[in-house]
Design a protein around this nucleic acid. Structure first.
Lengths: 108, 108
DNA sequence: CTTACATTTCGCCAAATGTAGAAATGTGAA
DNA sequence: TTCACATTTCTACATTTGGCGAAATGTAAG
């Protein structure tokens, strides 16, 4: 039960649910997520930690960034995240988006 | 998105998740739930209210009791609750169960 | 080694949440 | 109506949570 409890807890926050919906589209680094969500780096980082501990996402270093993506290896997570397909086209982005100080395009 | 958010929030509490697992087995009144969960009536009542507002359960008066049961009319809820079938046989009950002052068997 | 910078951790605050007990409410039975 | 009792609401309180900014950490490049 605790496994599901952790997942529900993690998804029971609007910011984290938005992050999950974003990562369903494509893997992203903290900076990119912050661009869209619009809060501080530390806040995003904390949310990612919670999602990671719930087994919903994992991370992998690529170039100078750590890319976060949905974890497709855990059954419970797959099932629940799949349900969110019904939500396509929902407002994930925020009104007040901060400019990203470190533009990722500088690198690639 | 907010519909799912509400459901995840509601299920993201151990007491409420336990209640949902109990109601998957059979409808119950507040008193019965309290017997198993082991907290105060007001606490149970509050949790039931949250589950109800999330559309996960509904209630119906029967005899002298209000029976709560899973709401089978909402798609999002059905899908999510169905996932919990994997949890069968999990520890729902509490160690420290209070005696039920008003024994339901007196009625039936 | 030093710099640059992406990310995490720490310390703190405000808001939200879970809980209990008392009082209030609703309702069937006498 | 009055009683009995199941349930909810109110009030208060302790804990948890989400947020930020600053400092710390990790690491690739010079």
């Amino acid at each position: 039960m605790d496994e599901y409890l952790k997942v529900f807890k993690a998804l029971g926050d609007k910011t984290r649910l938005r992050i999950v919906l974003m990562l369903k589209v494509k893997p992203m680094c903290v900076c990119e997520i912050r661009e869209i969500i619009g809060t501080s780096m530390s806040t995003i980082s904390n949310h990612l930690k919670i999602l990671k501990e719930a087994g919903i996402i994992n991370s992998q270093k690529e170039d100078r960034y750590i890319n976060y993506r949905l974890d497709n290896t855990r059954k419970a997570v797959i099932q629940i995240v799949d349900l969110l397909d019904n939500l396509d086209g929902i407002e994930i982005e925020n009104d007040k988006q901060k400019a990203c100080t470190t533009d990722r395009k500088n690198i690639g």
